[in-house]
């Protein structure tokens, strides 16, 4: 297909919606490009699928081993924990599908000076950096996460209401935002720290604790990782929306919404600040 056959829409008066529509159109083109690219490397696609499945399987085995010895961990039963891990998988994989590769590449763009080309484009710089590639294999693995969540619900004999499902989806979207913001924040440090691969490990290490039930955490640690770097609540809040029918979903989601706003606005400001300090490597 000729990519030029889908031009960016001409200027028409659509009011406030116009920029949004333009970004949507740009995203559509990049999305198609990356699907075409991905299908050129089928073996790689299948191998990545396998990698993520293995990691996921290992976590389920871990839960199985733990629950050999106890009936619950911090008032979470086995299938509730499995549901939590499925949710963590869903959020993590959605984040990886849309953003991971792009954000992980940012330090390299800064180091080589290739960032210049993105900054020159007449679109928002954060958008340009974050949306270049899409990972299809991660979507498959996100579906595996959904499967595990549904299976756990069956085991728990819970039939969530439509409202609960709606709030769950909204909470998952907030969770993806948190993953994105935190990793983008880490990657932005690349403007000062030239080789920032260590920051990618930082992402994995931080979200390592996202798959544990919230009540096990205590004290200052709990406060920091619930409010300032909200990794603990990212998967816990959506999971609780499904499990705890006695708690109102609105209250739960607010608990996630505030920190999400905080980290995404903070990251945006940090990015703008970092750009002002950018001295291209190529010039």
């Amino acid at each position: 297909m000729d990519l030029k056959s889908t031009p960016i829409p001409p200027k028409r008066s659509l009011g406030l919606l116009r920029p949004l529509k333009r970004y949507f159109e740009i995203y559509r083109i990049m999305f198609r490009n990356s699907l075409i690219r991905e299908m050129n490397f089928k073996a790689n696609f299948i191998l990545w699928l396998l990698v993520e499945l293995l990691w996921f399987l290992g976590q389920i085995i871990f839960v199985e081993v733990l629950f050999q010895y106890v009936n619950q961990i911090g008032d979470w039963s086995k299938w509730e924990v499995v549901l939590l891990i499925g949710t963590h998988q869903l959020i993590g994989q959605l984040f990886q599908a849309f953003f991971y590769v792009n954000v992980a590449n940012l330090p390299e763009l800064v180091r080589t000076g290739k960032l210049d080309f993105l900054l020159l484009q007449p679109i928002d710089s954060q958008f340009a950096v974050s949306t270049r590639q899409f990972g299809l294999d991660n979507v498959v693995n996100a579906m595996v996460g959904v499967g595990i969540v549904v299976f756990s619900l069956l085991k728990l004999a819970i039939l969530p209401t439509l409202g609960q499902v709606g709030f769950y989806i909204a909470a998952v979207a907030l969770g993806v935002t948190v993953h994105y913001s935190i990793m983008f924040f880490l990657a932005t440090m690349a403007f000062w720290i030239v080789r920032a691969q260590g920051l990618i490990y930082g992402y994995y290490n931080l979200f390592n604790i996202a798959r544990y039930p919230e009540p096990i955490f205590r004290g200052v640690f709990r406060f920091i990782f619930s409010w300032l770097i909200p990794v603990i609540i990212v998967a816990n809040v959506p999971a609780k929306i499904l499990i705890h029918s006695f708690e109102h979903p609105l209250g739960l989601i607010l608990q996630l919404l505030l920190p999400t706003l905080l980290v995404s606005v903070g990251t945006r400001a940090y990015w703008k600040f970092a750009l002002r300090h950018y001295s291209s490597a190529s010039s």
Partner: peptide, 28 residues
Amino acid sequence: WNFLLRSVFGFVPLAGTVFIWRAMFAET
């Protein structure tokens, strides 16, 4: 810096491990 940050972040999972096992042993 890369090196230092990597070492610092490496301790977050350790904290998670301590918390999960504390909860495990509280149950038993």
